[in-house]
Amino acid sequence: MAARDLSVPDSVVPALAPPAKKPYPFWLGGVAATIAASITHPLDLTKVRLQASGDKRMIESIKKTIRTAGVRGMFDGISGTWMRQMSYSMCRFWAYDESKKLLGAGKDAPAWKLAAAGSMAGGIAGFVGNPGEIVMVRLQGDFAKPPEKRFNYKHCFDALFRMVREEGVSSLARGVGPNVFRAVLMNASQLASYDFFKAELLKTHMFEDNILCHFTASFAAGTVATTVCSPADVLKSRIMNASGPGSNSTIGVIRQSLKADGPMFMFKGWVPAWTRLQPTTILIFLTLEQLKNGVDFSRRHGVTWL
């Protein structure tokens, strides 16, 4: 074996490149989002009912739900929430990671690259997850309607099958435009801003890559996402909750909403939306980071399927 040239200083001997880290399972984001959404479901339910019904105030809407359906009523439509998270959220986290690779958005990527990756992921996930989104919104909003106008779905799969049977396959695309638009805004603001804030916090050397850093970055991301997404979120809920010919027209819903509520209808339900999205965003990223830690721990101990 040839000896190393001792005339070459050790400082210029190229170090062996560390082995590439194995990607995390694609489903981690969906699991993290499902856990978070299950905990905050009552707040999401209240937000949807404020947006799509005549309820005016958050506390009054909660009292109305408990009065008419009991405490269990705060978890109406939970199966729709699970369906939505395991379709839309699983897809968006996977697509975001793949989009970052495509755009070369590494650890210290500029904000515009992260936002572009988030927008790409949102467009894909918004389309893929649209049926689950409709099912979730309808299940959550049903008991806020008069009895004669309710869909009376038993669970998420019953809702999906009945929609296809009673309204045609095209019903699964109801509100897909506003939903994709909202998903683009959500992922560009929530996922991208979390990565951006986390990177900026770590640069200050006041934070380490731990739960405090994750909490602070996700808190900031939740506020940004709520404000950016509110107009599209309101439109999506109103269109998806509507029924009858012509009721899925985005322009028609905007005209009716402007006439009834004025331009501020775009931010109707902002407080419950923030109250719901803020803890949801925090829980999603804290859970996701811990799931990643769990995968790293398992791999170190020989669990190769994670």
Rank of each mutant, 00 (worst) to 15 (best):
A36K: 07
A37N: 12
K47V: 13
A37I: 11
L45S: 00
L28V: 15
L50R: 05
Y24T: 14
A33E: 08
Y24S: 15
V31F: 07
H41Q: 15
G30V: 11
G54W: 00
D44K: 01
R57Y: 15
K56V: 00
A52Q: 11
A37S: 13
S61T: 14
V48W: 08
H41N: 12
H41E: 09
T34G: 10
A32T: 00
R49E: 12
R57D: 14
L45D: 07
I59E: 06
D55C: 08
S38M: 12
R49S: 03
I39V: 04
M58Y: 02
E60F: 04
K47A: 14
L43G: 03
Q51K: 03
K56H: 03
T40M: 10
D44N: 02
P42C: 04
Q51G: 04
E60V: 07
T46Y: 10
L28C: 14
G54H: 05
D44C: 05
H41P: 06
E60P: 07
K47R: 11
A32P: 01
L43R: 04
S38N: 08
Y24E: 14
H41K: 08
T46M: 14
L43H: 00
Q51S: 05
A36I: 08
P42W: 01
W27Q: 07
R57A: 12
L45F: 01
T46D: 02
E60T: 07
V48P: 02
V48L: 05
D55R: 10
K47P: 02
T46K: 13
S38V: 13
F26G: 00
F26R: 03
W27H: 06
I35L: 09
D55V: 09
I39N: 06
G54Q: 05
A36L: 12
S61Q: 13
A37L: 09
R49C: 07
K56E: 15
T46P: 01
P42M: 06
G30K: 03
G30F: 07
W27R: 07
S53A: 13
G54D: 09
A52W: 07
T34M: 11
